[in-house]
Design a protein around this nucleic acid. Structure first.
Lengths: 223, 223, 223, 223
DNA sequence: ACACTCGGGACAACCCGTTTAT
DNA sequence: ATAAACGGGTTGTCCCGAGTGT
């Protein structure tokens, strides 16, 4: 139906506008009117699709969630060693953060979750679980040291990635995320790879792409 | 003078109230009236000491800054190997985050900086610089592998710590930060210590205290 | 459309309420809440139609402008000697000031213009220009002495009228404006009419109506 | 006593600051804090000398009153024909308005009197009375036509002057008041002088000084 | 179903005129 | 004469709903 098609477009436009505003200002200092303006939609239309500011924020987070999960599943379906999958997941997520406004907005909102009513732990726990699985697989395959607890490793990788991405955001607006992700793994790998592993650190690290959108990654500025 | 003493008390009380509110709700969703109520102070008094919400937030951040820097300097003055100093710095900062409301509020505000007008890079860069120095000292002393660039290492430790602390906040309200910090170093150390180093990983990791305020650290829940 | 009709009514009601408040208290000491109350409208409605106090004041001034200009054009279209037109313009404007709250408010606001952001010279200059034209026509027709510069005459008449109306306001709330306008012309005419003019002073002065709204003009009280 | 001397200086400085602020912004939009700042005085000091904003405004008006009255008496003591005295009074008052901030502020406040609690008619009535006296003297001396009522003439001159000065303020910030006052009398005199009068219009008009503060009067711009 | 105009009312940040204690 | 505090009031915005139109 034509109407529904238009409605879909409106909804999408609203979500995109909301992502822009939320990303820049966070939940609290954003306003519905600004979103409406940014999305070139009247407030009436906005309130037809989302019945509160809260729900709008939730919709952005939801949208981010499906984007990220879909991409993650794509990676998980490819086969490859556990370590390479871990790295590819981080690279993919970093790429999304660098390029997709909705993902960035979703992350910011998730972080400020206390400002509106949002369950925030699920995504962290989901992702950690995935990492635990991979860690265990990597140990069974003899690629990852068994002196480390898989739980602890998974938790740390998730936290570490979170920090890398956030600091990159604060300092460069995420222009240098990809390079930072590479460096994260360069430092991490020697400590977690099994000493007998046949995998090569450099080769693994190169799973983080060197170019993006046809342009080279920005390198982190020296402090 | 008595008056100035009262003023000091009022000011402090406001800062503390503001820290409470900002910590819980972030900048945007906090309101001056709520801060005034929390601090048991009239709005008049509040606006006498801080001439805008923005300035109030800045004052909290500032306060956090001095607390953290002072503690950091205390650590730096003690002598010890570079690695042990790095770990102690993280432990100390983690401890502050676990116990001091002003520090927690300051960190949250720093992170949401874009919501108000705040320079946010300086503290990250300062801290990174300190870590670079320590990394270089550690390498010269033969404790840290020279295959890693000191810059990259410093940047990563800062980011990593940031993430650890934040994820701990999201999942447990920072109840398990200290344990997470320990695990972070357990995983990191084997990868960055020089193979000939005489230092012992376990000994180093134990620099992160096991008890706090007389109670044991909460362990991170398995995912 | 029903909605737009309601909106028009609301807007008008706001302007009228604003005129009442501004007339009585001037811009600075008026408050939006008072206007809303006077207009029996919520602040939401008020701010829907006017996005600031400033804009509200401007709207009142604007409204006054069209009322006055429309009336002025009505006079200018009638034919009559230049002098009679001048007098009729003053009479008409005086009448508006005596009877129309919006006109009174507009004049007060114009005068206090520096209190808000308003261009205030245009109306004076417009009116002066009209008077210059009339003065020149009156000279060409041989009714006005040519020993006076038309510019100077026009400027003075405008200023003089302004003063008459204002002093009447201060002393009697404009109850005696019309009589004062008559007296102004009685005194002025002998000095500006050409000695050969066939026009009669008394006849001209009687162009200022003696009755208004069915009641006689109030005479100025002796000092 | 030294203390009283300092108090006097403070008080004067406050009045001067208040005059500056009130002149620029009117009563309503002015604030005590701004006055204190402008006068370089604490609010406490301000409230020691004047116990309310209202009283401060009144003090400015009062000050203006004595300045103007004193100057007026100076003129009245000089002897000269009634007409020349009238003109000199206007010239003097115009000069004050052009040069003295307190006078300007006082006039503005008087005009906005309804915004605070101020009796505003007295000065107008005083001045009118003076003009009535002069008008009667001028008629007895045979210089002013007796066809005009002295009351009406006095009232009109006061109103007319008021308007001239105000329009000059709106259009040029009173830079051209003096020239406008001259023109006012050029136009008025022929209509009110007795036909047998020996006084010369040009000579009279020249009582309004051509220079001021060593600089020529600004001429009114053509409309 | 979808969209828009208009309005409601609570509340935000901030400031203002004023007083109290010193 | 001052520093500090007080409350209440100011302008303005925000989130949202009610009613109407397409």
């Amino acid at each position: 139906l034509v109407l529904q098609e238009r409605a879909r477009a409106t909804r999408e436009s609203i979500i995109f506008g909301a992502a822009k505003v939320f990303e820049e200002r966070g939940y609290g200092t954003s306003s519905i009117s600004l979103v409406a303006e940014e999305a070139e939609v009247t407030k009436g239309a906005l309130y037809f699709h989302f019945k509160s500011k809260d729900e709008l924020a939730r919709a952005v987070v939801e949208e981010q969630h499906v984007i990220v999960v879909r991409a993650g599943e794509g990676i998980l379906e490819q086969r490859g060693t556990a370590l390479s999958t871990m790295i590819r997941l981080c690279a993919e997520f970093g790429y999304q953060l660098a390029t997709d406004r909705i993902v960035r907005a979703g992350i910011r909102l998730t972080l400020e979750a206390s400002a509106f009513g949002h369950k925030v732990r699920d995504p962290y726990e989901d992702w950690t679980r995935t990492m635990v699985d991979l860690a265990e697989r990597g140990m069974q395959a003899g690629h990852i040291r068994t002196s480390i607890e898989p739980d602890a490793l998974a938790r740390y990788i998730v936290a570490s990635f979170t920090g890398v991405q956030m600091v990159s955001n604060v300092l460069t607006g995420r222009e240098d995320v990809m390079a930072r992700i590479q460096q994260m793994w360069e430092i991490l790998l020697p400590g977690i790879m099994h000493e007998d592993s046949t995998e090569d650190v450099h080769h693994l690290v190169d799973l983080v792409p060197k170019r993006w959108n046809g342009q080279d990654f920005v390198l982190p500025a020296s402090a």
